[in-house]
Design a protein around this nucleic acid. Structure first.
Lengths: 371, 371
DNA sequence: CTGAAAGCGCTAACAG
DNA sequence: CTGTTAGCGCTTTCAG
């Protein structure tokens, strides 16, 4: 028999059908609807398939026909190395993967390089929907996703008309945290935050920069903080806010160093993430500052390491964020998306977790509002 | 104009061409080969596209035509929650993602539920290749992947004829580690290992079970260990090996507890992963055992937390594993895969890292082989 | 620079 | 239970 030996993918559903002398439908049914043909015939089909080296229906062709790719795309901020090191981001990814796994749907990480205009990757992704997580609100990739005629869920992004959204109430959470510190008596504070925009600025962030930040979460946390403290008479323009582009313990430490060098009077450092706070903790220790006696430090996110360190922080259910987003996307009852009237906004609960890194400042009198 | 308002995806390349009065080729070129038509015409095409709500060429149809999906599939062991919590697995994922990002290719996490025979997810994944990482060697999903007519790279799996493979030399690494302990004088040892097969067995693992383990890495590490110690007169059948299905610090601790309760005489616990070792460290501390004075503990992998704890361990470049696998898959010069003669086997370097958790046993004389 | 022709490989009615 | 008929939406020679 002169059949080619190693020319893969020479066999196709049609050629198999021809070889067998049956119709394409029958072969298709052998794979997709076993109940639609006799077991014997099915066996014959499958056996011949094996003999011919036919690997089963081509997934892409099937997707084109059925209009289902069997995967959803995940658009993450910038370099993946960051995403894979950040526990909060990982939690989201895990939650999403779990939801998709339950539905037998794949999760495709769509490469989205920062600077490049290679929005093409978004256009080329064969997926049934997108989840967009924590990208700057002016990211061209986000725009490209919105262009695609598939349902999209955004996580931790500003509300967009007609687009489902999952996020905690960052503003409320931050307000609660702020008042925790305010009630303890802190008025001289400093802030550490993550990158505010796509351009790198490792150092103090002006109020203008804070308000114009393109990372929605950071912007919200900062402006909420400002409002809370201004409500009790603190002039926000005097509050030092140090920004870091990279999100690591070391950068948190160096940011704290920069902050404390310039503002030794601060009694509390509020960080917009646990990672930064943990780094700040290291720096405090290095300087011989006792926490919380000499300095209070707070985080945000509630990652495992924070709990271990008994950090005062805001816990947010990161895994739940991913899972909700996945469920929203996969929910078969929610057809007709893109319709503003049918938009879902899911707000997740957060929880202030008071650890051992916050206490009244040494010199200030306390302001108790309670009994 | 009676155009439907919200019936998404009504516009197609063909309808756009018709509307414009040009050929489909021209429209296609407007998107894929801008240099093949005048800027004016291109602009007109794009403008009309926007007006008609045409979102650009359909990715799936394009994939069918070009025979390129623009993504590679990743088959991971079992539940993702495990993969996303294990630093070694994450390193692999990160490395792979990095390599793919550089090539503008997506990474699709293919859901592969443990027990289920839902190999369908593998058959349905529209990808240009697969990376398989650390699944049991009898996993049906692996088989399904091998069936697909696309290139595949396996990581940390037994060598398979004609399939590219990336892995460290686990045997050599474990031998080196074993001799480190042997030279220190340890003869009474115990072992903690990860799951050996798909069936759960939290407890002692018989030698038979060790040798028949379906997780290649675990099997290799254990059998190598056995050989090394038998070479210096230790009867391996007397060496307690405790297995754990879940891979967490707590399970490591509980495994150590089980081991030490039954075998208080051991002077060293060798763990097949850092996580287990770190858990064992916790348990030692809980019992008031000093490490390494009273008990030596070693890990395997070289994750960040191990370094922080100054654990004696074997470092392996996990990120590099993922990256090499990705590069192998994406290398355009390596066509004609599946050919045994063209098979690539990449062996990664490992490094014994002696930390502060290994020292001579208290009571034994030391056996120096050196000067 | 543009168009016509020819499928990529498959599934989904709808009849028989 | 099986076959016929029609595309899914796109790219790509190859001529003009």
């Amino acid at each position: 028999m002169g059949r080619p030996i190693r020319t893969r993918r020479q066999a196709t559903l049609a050629s198999l059908a021809a070889e067998l002398g049956v119709s394409r439908t029958t072969v298709s049914n052998a794979y997709n609807r076993p109940d639609q043909l006799s077991p014997e015939l099915r066996k014959r089909v499958l056996d011949t398939a094996r003999k011919l080296g036919y690997p089963g229906p081509d997934p892409v062709a099937r997707s084109l026909r059925t209009r289902k790719a069997g995967a959803i795309g995940l658009l993450l901020t910038e370099n993946l190395s960051y995403a894979f090191r950040d526990p909060a981001a990982l939690g989201v990814l895990e939650g999403l993967a779990l939801a998709c796994e339950d539905a037998g749907v794949g999760v495709q990480l769509v490469p989205a390089r920062p600077g490049e205009e290679d929005v093409a990757t978004v256009h080329r992704a064969g997926v049934d929907g997108f989840v967009v997580y924590s990208v700057p609100d002016d990211d061209p990739h986000l725009n490209a996703v919105l262009q695609r005629p598939v349902p999209t869920v955004i996580i931790d992004q500003p509300v967009l008309s007609g687009v489902d959204r999952v996020a905690p109430d960052d503003a409320a959470a931050m307000t609660t945290l702020a008042y925790h510190l305010i009630e303890l008596g802190h008025r001289e504070i400093g802030v550490l935050c993550m990158r505010l925009s796509r351009d790198r600025n490792d150092g103090f962030a002006s109020r203008d920069r804070q308000e114009k930040a393109h990372y929605h979460v950071q912007r919200t946390r900062l402006t909420t903080l400002a409002e809370s403290f201004e409500a009790v008479g603190v002039d926000w323009s005097t509050v030092p806010v140090v920004e870091r582009f990279e999100h690591t313990l070391d950068e948190g430490a160096s940011a704290a160093r920069q902050l404390l060098d310039a503002n030794p009077q601060v009694t509390a450092i509020i960080c917009t993430s646990d990672i930064l706070a943990l780094g700040a903790l290291n720096e405090a220790q290095r300087r011989g500052l006792r926490v919380p006696a000499d300095l209070s430090i707070t985080g945000f996110d509630g990652i495992a390491d924070a709990e271990r360190a008994e950090l005062t922080t805001v816990y947010q259910p990161v895994r739940e964020k991913g899972r909700s987003a996945g469920n929203l996307l996969l929910d078969p009852t929610r057809r007709g998306q893109g319709n503003p009237l049918n938009q879902q906004i899911i707000t997740l609960e957060t929880e202030l977790r008071i650890g051992k890194t916050s206490a009244p400042p040494r010199t200030a009198e306390q302001h108790w509002f309670g009994p």
